[in-house]
Simulated assay, not measured.
Amino acid sequence: MRTQEMALLTHDTLLLPEGRIEIRVVDPAYLSMIAEVLKLHYQLVFGMSRANNDLPCYEMATQCEIIDFNLLDDDSLGIVLQGKQRVRILSAAKRRDGVWISRTLACNNWQQEPINGEFELISAALEQFYQVNPDLFGLYDNDMHLEDASWVSQRWLEVLPLYNKDKLRLLNQPNCHKTMHFVLELIKSHASAKSY
Rank of each mutant, 00 (worst) to 15 (best):
M1E: 01
T3N: 02
Q4I: 01
E5G: 00
M6F: 03
M6S: 13
A7P: 01
A7V: 06
L9Y: 13
T10C: 13
T10P: 00
T13N: 15
T13L: 13
L14Q: 09
L15H: 08
L15W: 04
R20M: 12
I21S: 12
V25C: 02
A29R: 14
A29C: 06
S32P: 11
S32M: 12
A35I: 06
E36H: 04
V37K: 10
L40G: 06
Q43N: 12
G47H: 05
M48W: 02
S49F: 13
R50S: 00
A51Y: 10
N52T: 00
N52E: 15
N53K: 08
D54K: 13
P56F: 12
E59K: 09
E59I: 03
A61T: 10
A61M: 04
T62K: 06
E65F: 00
I67V: 15
D68N: 14
D68W: 11
F69G: 11
L77A: 05
L77E: 07
G78Y: 09
V80L: 03
K84G: 06
K84Q: 13
S91D: 14
A92K: 08
R96V: 01
V99S: 05
V99Y: 11
W100C: 05
I101L: 14
T104I: 08
T104C: 15
L105V: 04
L105E: 14
A106R: 03
N108H: 09
N108A: 13
W110H: 08
Q111W: 02
E113A: 09
E113K: 02
G117W: 06
F119C: 00
E120Y: 11
L121Y: 08
S123W: 08
A124R: 15
E127Y: 12
Q128F: 15
Y130E: 07
N133I: 09
D135K: 07
L136Q: 11
F137V: 08
D141M: 11
L146M: 09
L146C: 07
E147H: 15
E147Q: 15
E147P: 01
A149N: 03
S150D: 10
W151R: 03
W151Q: 06
W151I: 02
R155G: 12
W156I: 05
E158A: 03
E158T: 08
Y163K: 15
N164H: 10
N164C: 01
K165A: 13
D166K: 05
K167L: 02
R169W: 14
L171P: 03
L171S: 07
Q173P: 00
N175W: 05
H177I: 03
T179L: 05
T179V: 02
L184M: 09
L184P: 02
E185K: 10
L186R: 07
I187C: 04
I187K: 07
I187V: 03
S189V: 04
S192H: 12
A193T: 14
